[in-house]
């Protein structure tokens, strides 16, 4: 019974939240990795692209709520999501036309594009704060829980409860659907294959008659969709705050690089690896250990390896280790 309680406590505080967080990071890292594979630079503006998409979605959500529209037990934000994606797609395509295309035509080095993307990041940062403000926004509505801790305790008779929030369930289901669609697209469609060909060997893709501007535009649209979905899921699960999204850049890049930048499969693996590490290192294990260890060994302290304030250090350490010992990442990155 104690063991079951320990398992439930572990699932409640580590497994479920980390899986949801991992799915959000994976979606974010997929966007970074696609840009890297096709446009060949690390897009520092990705966190703020997520913030922008989430902002548009929130504004549309508010409009829908004001008009009295709701999505039953599901959050209204899901109805607003297509608008958010469309708005973000227009924004990134506009940025590409105004900014990145110029440097592409100059055949600028990747490092220059990275700096350019930082410029875009600061501008987006400002735009989002001007429009929606720097404060925190909660926009989740609908049913709060799939299973509450109380219901779970009543159902199983255990003393530990397992709560699954509907946003967590939603995150995982959405992530699975989105990833499946993306892989289907990249593997089987003509356009998806041309993206992979372009990423693999740009010159040969040109010789084969693949239009680079079209590949670039489609990549941006997919990235806009991924960023908006990742941002909205994160915002529903936690809350929306522009600065938090800017900070997400670090774990997202860590995920992409740990998995092998340019490899979509790696981005997913990296997302979960970073999320589990971050949650496990900052979780106070006292409860789980009290259940599993004999009484005389029960810990007095919290058994928390790092305070949650230091959670970004976890991404950093993993990043450094991977770059030292396996710079191409777990899945041998570089081309999709």
């Amino acid at each position: 019974m104690d063991f079951l309680n320990a398992l439930v406590a572990f699932a409640n505080f580590v497994l479920v939240p980390a899986t949801a967080y991992g799915a959000q990071l994976a979606l974010g890292a997929l966007g970074v990795t696609l840009i890297y594979a096709v446009l060949r630079f690390s897009n520092f503006a990705h966190g703020d692209t997520m913030a922008f998409g989430t902002m548009v979605t929130i504004l549309v959500t508010w409009a829908l709520q004001a008009a009295g529209v709701s999505f039953g037990p599901l959050p209204t934000a899901l109805l607003a999501l297509p608008f958010g994606i469309a708005g973000t797609a227009l924004m990134v395509l506009g940025t590409d036309r105004l900014v990145y295309r110029f440097y592409r035509q100059q055949r600028a080095k990747p490092v220059i594009l990275v700096i350019v993307s930082m410029g875009v990041m600061f501008i987006l940062n400002g735009i989002v704060r001007i429009i929606i403000g720097p404060g925190e926004q909660n926009f989740a509505d609908g049913e709060r829980f799939i299973v509450t801790a109380g219901e779970f305790r009543k159902m199983t008779g255990l003393s530990e409860g397992l709560a699954i929030r509907s946003t967590q369930g939603l995150t995982i289901v959405t992530a699975v659907i989105v990833v499946a669609l993306l892989f289907w697209f990249l593997t089987y469609t003509r356009t998806g294959k041309s993206m992979r060909a372009f990423s693999d060997n740009e010159d040969l893709a040109l010789l084969s008659g693949i239009n680079p501007e079209r590949v670039v535009a489609i990549t941006w649209i997919i990235v806009a969709a991924l960023a908006t979905i990742a941002g909205v899921l994160y915002g529903l699960d936690k809350s929306f705050k522009p600065f938090t999204y800017f900070q997400l850049l670090l774990p997202i890049f860590a995920s992409a690089i740990v998995g092998g930048i340019g490899s979509p499969l790696g981005a997913i693996a990296g997302g979960f690896l970073i999320a589990y590490s971050e949650v496990m290192v900052t979780y106070a294990w006292k409860k789980v250990l009290t259940y599993t260890l004999p009484d005389n060994l029960a810990p007095d302290g919290l058994v928390q390896l790092l305070s949650t304030d230091y959670k970004f250090a976890v991404s950093f350490v993993i990043l450094v280790i991977v770059l030292l010992f396996r710079p191409t990442g777990l899945f041998r990155g570089k081309s999709i």
Partner: peptide, 12 residues
């Protein structure tokens, strides 16, 4: 295209 299959190379 090294990362693509033989058949995908031909398709491209």
């Amino acid at each position: 295209f090294t990362s693509m299959t033989v058949e995908e190379n031909l398709e491209m």
